[in-house]
Design a protein around this nucleic acid. Structure first.
Lengths: 227, 227
DNA sequence: TGTAAATTTTATGCAACATAAAATTTAATA
DNA sequence: TATTAAATTTTATGTTGCATAAAATTTACA
């Protein structure tokens, strides 16, 4: 008769497994942050994490799965930033949103950059994906448009879905340029703010448009003279 | 004494070399257009072009150089489209620009998509690069902004460099989404037109803004109901 | 048709990802 | 604390793709 065993063993093992898994992932993160995505190989990861390559396969999976895990962690942290918004007016909405992102990315810029490149390469940002970050962000942008209209900042001549699309697109293109190393974090900030404020300006009231344009000009000129 | 030889032999060889080189590049293009970028290996290219791998290295270079050649060809064709513009008004400028691009990409969509992905991966679109397509496109966008202001479509409250940046950015983000397979060619068209018209709208005169918004709404709604 | 140069191919190496099977470690329990 | 079965790690090996030196072949001209 087979001996029946308590569950304690399994639970302990599972916990340890998770810990080792996390150690490997942290090492992976370090490698990418330090030497860039190109320097990331399973062999190098194995050496730095003090295991062998098959162990990585056993604990996490193939290279693609290791990378996916890193990006999932990153997206989760980014989503937390996105969710913390309370609407007052378009300018402060854009500013607080931007500054939240900036302070997140500032800490570990090399890693975040790489993670976005990897996520794109691994097709993790599919627009169609229902629970995906794309749909969530668009929904958020749409809500901001509705709020702005309700508070009398927008006229409402432009379809809110269209406006939300543009708001999101302008935010994204700035991120693309940053993650591909075309611009630095401070220019990312400028492009993002200008893009979003300009989008609002297209549907702003007569009184509010000059305010948006003034703010936009300030941010733009500040950034230009820094170069 | 060494025999002196005429230049004919060299010239003939050079011409033949170019021809063979072009054959290989055309085959490469076919492979990418048919099976996507992932299916492109030097071994596969050698087989389909009826040569061996070292021959490819000899005639063109390493994998990266083969890809670079393909992208250079593509960029040249795209630049021709960009240059053929005569300004009348913002709407027709945007429309003709867009439709020129669309008709170019329509013929060989899979290849163009892949070529943009490759170009990005090979860092061929560096913003700083003086003679690069980035600077050229920005300059073009800037000129359109000046024209639009001169013809009385824009007020001029928004800095023209800023406006050109946004015009170009909105065009680019639509292309990113298309080249990564997130949207199809017709949606690419819609996003690009809406993005650029909205940018103009932010600085348009009182009379012209409704015209821009009306056009934008038409394009947007047409695209939405197609889905 | 011979010849020197150019070109192609054969043969081989290297790097990175991946996995089967053997060896080792682990944690509960008697 | 010694045993044991399961989990885990490692050794050994395979595969694929890029790259190149050196040998074999082809080329175009005299």
């Amino acid at each position: 008769m087979k001996p029946v065993r308590a569950q304690g063993g399994v639970a302990t093992r599972t916990a340890n497994k998770l810990k080792r898994k996390q150690t490997i992932l942290n090492t992976a993160r370090d490698i990418i942050a330090t030497g860039g995505y190109a320097s990331f190989t399973l062999a190098e990861l194995a050496i730095q994490a003090n295991v062998t390559v098959p162990t990585i396969h056993n604990l996490i999976g193939n290279k693609s799965e290791v990378l996916t895990q890193l990006v999932v962690d990153m997206v989760e942290r980014t989503e937390q930033v996105l969710s913390s918004t309370a609407f007052k007016d378009p300018i402060s909405a854009v500013e607080s949103f931007t500054d939240n992102l900036m302070s997140l990315y500032h800490d570990d810029e090399a890693f975040y950059k790489a993670a976005f490149v990897i996520g794109e390469q691994e097709s993790m940002f599919e627009h169609g994906h229902a629970g995906g970050i794309f749909k969530k962000s668009l929904k958020l942008a749409y809500q901001v448009c509705l709020d702005a209209k309700e508070h009398g900042f927008l006229v409402g001549n432009i379809n809110s879905e269209l406006l939300a699309d543009r708001l999101f697109a302008n935010q994204r293109i700035a991120r693309y340029d940053w993650m591909h190393g075309y611009i630095d974090l401070s220019e990312y900030r400028c492009q993002m703010i200008c893009g979003m404020l300009l989008t609002f300006a297209a549907d702003a009231t007569e009184e509010y448009r000059p305010v948006l344009i003034a703010k936009m000009s300030t941010v733009f000129l500040e950034s230009v003279e820094q170069r």
